[in-house]
Design a protein around this nucleic acid. Structure first.
Length: 269
DNA sequence: TAACCGTGGGC
DNA sequence: TGCCCAAGGTT
């Protein structure tokens, strides 16, 4: 849930989620569509699907337990190098090199003297993080947490609070006179994209208790429908039929939706 | 490698 | 008001 999503937005969903599915086996026994629905508006709904798949794998291959090694964690769907390292370190006390967006930014400034880390994680960054990580496991866990928190609370992306920084005197970026970024971060297109349409269709599917006829998704003539507000959001996008078709096809391909007997679509069972 | 994948808070 | 950004992963 925390992948690319602020902690404060995750917390309420996470709490409800764990009350409903306290362990991997409980989640594995639910339909994947229920996981997608409970995911709510956290975004990137494929993460819900992958979490459900990971729970199924843990139920079947790991006695219903979350594996405690980096390698086993990495093999789970939706778990990459960051998540595997974070769980190994913070849940199991392992020495694992955690590299998240906060740690990357702290290293970029403190060590490399640049305003921002590279656009994508590089091998050099991973090597640096691995080199800096204390050898002793207990200290390494503390180090990971400390650097991450420094980035989250002090060495922030927008306006870092250097005056409050405990390592300001060691900072290469400050010493260099706070040089500006050497590249322009390019934001992701949103308005008018398939992505936006996918999101709106998913919101309709989550709001609907059962499946929906495709006609309902295409024609703005059902504002009195129980899922009317989400349908209205979809209609407001004024997507071409071809784009809506493409978005739906993508959702079916990704397993976020499935075709129903009556020719409609629904969340997966 | 680079594109793709959601959402909403904050500046 | 838009735009940036957030505990990334997969193809």
């Amino acid at each position: 849930m925390l992948q690319q999503t602020p902690v404060t937005r995750v917390l309420p969903v996470w709490q409800d989620w764990l009350l409903r599915w306290p362990d991997p086996t409980a989640l594995a026994q639910a339909p994947s569509g229920e996981a997608v629905r409970a995911w709510g508006r956290l975004g990137y709904p494929r993460r819900a699907l992958r979490l459900h798949a990971a729970a199924t794998l843990m139920a079947n291959e790991h006695d219903g337990e979350v594996p405690g090694s980096y390698a086993a964690l990495l093999s789970l769907p939706g778990v990459g190098s960051y998540t595997a390292a974070a769980v190994a370190a913070f849940a199991f006390g392992c020495r694992a090199t955690v590299v998240d967006t906060n740690i990357r930014r702290v290293h970029a400034r403190l060590i490399s003297g640049t305003a921002l880390p590279a656009p994508a994680l590089t091998a050099a960054e991973t090597r640096l993080a691995d080199h800096l990580l204390p050898t002793e496991p207990g200290q390494s866990v503390r180090w990971n947490a400390a650097v991450m928190e420094l980035g989250a609370l002090i060495c922030t992306a927008r306006s870092p609070n250097c005056a409050q920084c405990p390592v300001q005197e060691k900072c290469a970026w400050l010493a260099a006179g706070e040089p500006a970024p050497t590249y322009q971060p390019k934001g992701q297109a949103w308005a008018g994209t398939d992505r936006q349409v996918r999101g709106a269709v998913m919101a309709v599917l989550r709001a609907a208790g059962t499946g929906l006829q495709r006609g309902l998704l295409f024609a703005p003539a059902h504002s009195e429908h129980p899922v009317g507000s989400e349908l209205a959001r979809l209609y407001r996008l004024n997507a071409e039929e071809s784009q809506l078709e493409r978005a739906i096809a993508g959702l079916l391909t990704d397993g976020l939706a499935q075709a129903t007997d009556g020719g409609g679509i629904a969340l997966p069972a």
